[in-house]
Amino acid sequence: MPSSVIRSFAYDEPARRLDIEFVSGRVYAYHDVPPAVARAMAASGSRGGYFNRRIRDRYRFTRLPEASMAPE
């Protein structure tokens, strides 16, 4: 389901890193995210809501260059 907040995201399971591109164009890498959390976000009916409830303010993050995510 499309999100009004999140443009795209990708999960690297071996690195436990969730990269999220927001509609603002900003891209962040969230570190040490368990696979179950990433799967639940992918299955969520509201990815923005899931992000706010389960990821934001819970995992360490770094900001990435805005062109770092490949287009879907």
Rank of each mutant, 00 (worst) to 15 (best):
G25S: 07
T62A: 08
R54D: 11
P65K: 05
A15S: 07
R56T: 05
A15D: 01
A67H: 08
R58D: 07
G45P: 08
F9G: 03
F51Y: 00
G49F: 06
F51M: 00
S68A: 02
S8V: 03
M69F: 11
L18S: 00
F9K: 08
P2D: 12
A70I: 08
R63E: 15
R7N: 09
R47Y: 03
S68V: 06
F9T: 02
V23D: 12
S8D: 12
F22E: 14
A43Q: 04
D19Y: 09
F51S: 04
R39D: 15
Y50I: 00
R17T: 08
S68T: 06
R53A: 09
V33N: 00
D19Q: 15
Y11Q: 01
G45F: 08
G25D: 04
Y30H: 15
A10T: 12
Y30C: 06
S44F: 07
D57H: 15
F9I: 00
H31E: 10
A70S: 05
R26K: 12
A70F: 06
R16E: 13
I20K: 04
R58S: 08
S8K: 01
G45C: 11
L64Y: 01
A15L: 13
S46M: 06
E13T: 02
G45E: 14
A40Y: 01
R63A: 05
I20A: 09
R63H: 09
P35A: 11
A70R: 11
V27F: 02
S8E: 13
P34N: 07
S44M: 03
E66M: 11
Y59P: 11
G45N: 13
N52P: 00
F9W: 05
E21L: 05
G45Q: 10
V33K: 12
V5R: 13
A43F: 01
S24N: 13
D32V: 04
P2K: 15
V33S: 06
P65S: 13
S8N: 09
P35R: 09
A10P: 02
S4G: 10
R54F: 13
I20H: 06
A43K: 01
A29M: 06
